[in-house]
Design a protein around this nucleic acid. Structure first.
Length: 653
RNA sequence: GCUCGCGUAGCUCAGUUGGAUAGAGCAUUCGCCUCCUAAGCGAAGGGUCGCAGGUUCGACUCCUGCCGUGAGCGCCA
């Protein structure tokens, strides 16, 4: 039974009577001012709309509140209805009502979360790494957030299609093809193709970077000289009596100095690259035009060159195996894995169609879609005739709408691509796809300690696989310490589940909009607000059930009354009843972190309950049964919540 | 330069769309295992919610300006 919905339903007719002729949106806005109280002393729920109505109705908020309370039938639902402060209406729900609602949740297999009345087909675009490049920490966000959103949408009855839109057609293949043609160790390739391809990618990358550094170094040095000159000039002015001017001059000096320091850093980096080992220098000398040659290989692939296409066909399965290994470890599956290559043969006709419809026009040799409200157009075909990311994305929208009948598409992609999606969505609407709801579920960047997008000192990002290894081994160490007598296999299983859970939860529990700083210790923490805390609470429930030899199924079907003998039991019950409110909030804004918050609060209440309310030594058998019911439902809610986040739970950790 | 985001405790972050005395975790200090898992519980300290105005019964939340910071800005994805 939905508590919040129930309260709102009670207030709705009274508000409609009070505001004659108000539209539904206005009433909804007022009803959204019904919310849980922040503090128990104000009761369970508070209604705040009296204050908002004061001006509109021209009377005192307390009078409005009084009038509202008189008109709303609450005596069967509320123990206490109090007016407080400027016009708050504080509601305390009757214990009887809570107990009734709780029995219904206990009896319901779906924890009384209602299925949606109008199921939609929701396509979720997630993960989308470039194959053939090692996956790093940055990829975890899209994957994990997208997976959680998929599971939650499914849970309430939507039809969900997850699609991993792989980058499998880009320049990285030009690099691998070039690398294969010039540097392959055929024996190594036979033995372990994935590893050899990965080596080739990195090798070519290093040489390309070498030439990049060789080109950039003098430019950086020149820029530094210019900045030094400017600094000297400004410093010469640093004697003025004008205070405001002096302040500005000082600031300019400061800024210039920072810029120079930045150039110095770059110069050091480039110099280091150029002085890398002798082999690289020698190879670089033999391949002076490698950067361009790589592009040529890529272009040949796109144009259908037989040799390159064969190589691509040969390499791709190995690349897919490589990333699949990581998805297996993350325990994540996709309904479809349609990469960019899937859409290649559809691009030319799309550009043609858009041109014929005069949606796309030529500009500087490129085909562009000009859009109202955007300075730059969306380019769908380059000067040279090649297609872009934008073109593929348009083809993807068509495919998802026409083949999959998508009603909604969620793109779980880094916020830096916000502009791209704004344009894409606008272009798609112009193209005629007006019924499908397109949403960029953006998320913040993973930053390093220095507050810049994450890189290690060596310039590499932290590999995702290494991170998973580390998470599991840290958790295994604790598991061994906690359960020294358990068989090794089970210790390992605990290590895997706990480590992976910690990793996923660390990401999911952040507001997805914020950038966040990466830290091993934070991502792999096993104490405090972590998945481990939730898994631990669940394991403690199972400890109780085991000790008392409780049949969980039987418990669920029993109709014994819940008894609130301690305050924390009522608080726990209230929290358990709010699961459905939380699910709705998560979906309203695609924010899994709200589910994390809810589960953490629930686990916290359970930890207190565990401390204060012994089940085994309960004062009576009735209280013991009631507590068992609370334990059972807590465990089911935690397990379900974790599962929706893509995190496993265990009966013992 | 233009556009968008962010600035909350020593650190990392929440903050239910404008509600009552701003919250967690980590770190620090103290207390709690004869008792259902101490990966836990309880307590303490720690804040000019970047700064200055404005809007109103009420502002961390909305508006304006400033400061700091990050990202994006026609042929990369």
């Amino acid at each position: 039974m939905k508590l919040l919905t129930e309260i709102k339903a009670r207030f709705k007719p009274a508000l409609e009577a009070l505001l004659e002729g108000a539209n539904a949106a206005e009433i909804d806005a007022l009803l959204s001012m019904v919310r849980p109280t922040q503090d128990d002393k104000f009761g369970d729920y508070q209604v705040n709309c009296a204050m908002a109505l004061a001006k509109k109705l021209g009377s005192a908020p307390r009078d409005i509140a009084t009038a509202l309370v008189e008109q709303v039938k609450l005596d069967d639902l509320c123990e206490k209805v109090e007016l407080a402060g400027p016009g708050f209406i504080n509601l305390t729900i009757k214990d009887m009502w809570l107990k009734g609602a709780l029995s219904k949740v206990i009896a319901d297999t779906n924890l009384a979360v209602e299925q949606v009345a109008d199921p939609r087909t929701v396509v979720i675009d997630l993960s989308s790494p470039n194959v053939a490049k090692p996956m790093h920490v940055g990829h975890i966000r899209s994957t994990v957030i997208g997976d959680a959103l998929a599971k939650i949408h499914r849970f309430i009855g939507h039809k969900v299609i997850t699609d991993n839109h792989l980058g499998d057609w880009g320049t990285q293949f030009g690099m691998i093809i070039y690398g294969y043609k010039h540097f392959v160790d055929e024996q190594a390739y036979q033995q372990n193709p994935v590893q050899e391809l990965s080596r080739l990618y990195k090798y070519v990358r290093v040489i390309v970077d070498y030439h990049g550094a060789a080109k950039a170094l003098p430019e950086a040095q020149e820029l530094k000289q210019k900045q030094l000159g400017a600094l000297e000039k400004i410093q010469a002015q640093d004697h003025t009596d004008d205070k405001a001017k002096l302040k500005k001059v000082k600031k300019d000096i400061q800024r210039l100095k920072e810029k120079i320091a930045l150039q110095d850093e770059l110069i050091v980096g480039f110099t280091k690259t150029l002085n890398s080992d002798a082999e690289i220098q020698a190879v670089a000398a033999q391949h002076p035009t490698i950067a361009n040659d790589v592009l040529v290989e890529t272009a040949k692939l796109h144009e259908g060159d037989k040799e390159n296409r064969e190589l691509w066909d040969k390499f791709l399965p190995h690349c897919l195996d490589d990333i699949q290994r990581i998805y297996d470890r993350l325990n994540i599956e996709f309904d479809y894995v349609l990469g960019e290559s899937f859409y290649q043969d559809k691009l030319a006709s799309i550009v043609e169609e858009l041109t014929n419809k005069e949606i796309a026009t030529e500009s500087d040799g490129a085909m562009c879609v000009f859009l109202d409200g955007f300075e730059a157009p969306m380019i769908i075909r380059k000067k040279g005739g090649a297609f872009l990311y934008s073109t593929t994305d348009l083809a993807t929208i068509r495919h998802r709408v026409e083949e999959w009948k998508a009603d909604t598409m969620l793109y779980v992609v880094d916020h830096r691509q916000g502009d791209h999606f704004d344009k894409l969505f606008a272009a798609s609407e112009k193209w005629g796809y007006t019924d499908v709801e397109l949403t960029h579920v953006s998320y913040g960047t993973v930053m390093g300690d220095d507050g810049k997008p994450f890189k290690t000192r060596a310039g590499d990002t932290v590999g995702l696989e290494g991170l998973i290894d580390e998470a599991e081994s840290r958790a295994l160490a604790v598991a061994k310490e906690q359960n020294p007598n358990l068989e090794e296999d089970r210790q390992k299983e605990i290590g895997r589940v706990v480590g992976l859970g910690a990793l996923k939860y660390a990401d999911l529990s952040q507001n997805r909009n914020s950038d966040y700083k990466f830290s091993y210790d934070k991502m792999l923490a096993l104490k405090g607000n972590t998945a481990t805390y939730l898994q631990y609470a669940n394991a403690r429930v199972h400890g109780i059930l085991r000790k008392l030899d409780t049949d969980v199924e039987k418990l669920r079907s029993s109709t014994d009354d819940i008894i609130f003998s301690e305050a924390v039991e009522r608080q726990l019950a209230m929290q358990l009843l709010r699961f459905d409110e939380t699910i709705n909030e998560v979906l309203a804004e695609y924010r899994p972190n709200l589910l994390c918050n809810y589960l953490f609060d629930l686990a916290q209440l359970f930890a207190r309950f565990f401390d204060q309310c012994s089940v085994r030594d309960a004062a009576s058998s009735e209280i013991q049964l009631s507590r068992l019911q609370l334990c059972g439902l807590t465990s089911r809610t935690l397990t379900c919540g974790l599962e929706l986040l893509g995190i496993e739970s265990l009966e013992r950790i």
